[in-house]
């Protein structure tokens, strides 16, 4: 196995552990925004899609690249926007007088 590939595996495993540590403490109130925010982050595959779309040659590669960029862009833009919309509602409200 190439050293670069093993580096990739190492990064993956360590990042998964960081993920477990960071997310295990999120309170249930924020589970939906957490999930949609995480979902937007998984749209980082757009990086691969840009390369595939930009450098692919031929009709098939063009179609694949275009679809990949489109799907990933839906995921990224939609994911971050909807999460922000939800979190705006979680702003601290001034306490009602009682």
């Amino acid at each position: 196995m190439s050293a670069e590939f093993i580096d990739g595996i190492v990064v993956f495993v360590l990042a998964a552990f960081i993920g477990f540590e960071v997310i295990a403490k999120v309170p249930p109130t924020l589970h939906t925004p957490l999930m949609s925010g995480a979902n937007a982050i998984s749209g980082v595959t757009i990086v691969g899609a840009l390369v595939a779309g930009g450098l692919g040659s031929g009709l098939l590669a063009g179609v694949l690249g275009f679809l990949a960029v489109t799907f990933a862009a839906v995921n990224v833009v939609g994911g971050f926007l909807v999460t922000d919309r939800m979190l705006e509602m979680f702003k601290r409200k001034p306490k009602a007088d009682s």
């Binding site: 993956f12 990042a15 552990f17 960081i18 993920g19 999930m35 982050i41 980082v44 691969g48 390369v51």
Partner: peptide, 27 residues
């Protein structure tokens, strides 16, 4: 996403994907 990151050797993809994989699994 993380496996796609391993294919093209991209750090941001591997880390982002692994984080999301962990988050989804916990939930």
């Amino acid at each position: 996403a993380a496996t796609a990151g391993l294919v093209i050797g991209n750090l941001a993809l591997i880390v982002g994907g692994a984080l999301v994989g962990a988050a989804g699994l916990i939930l």
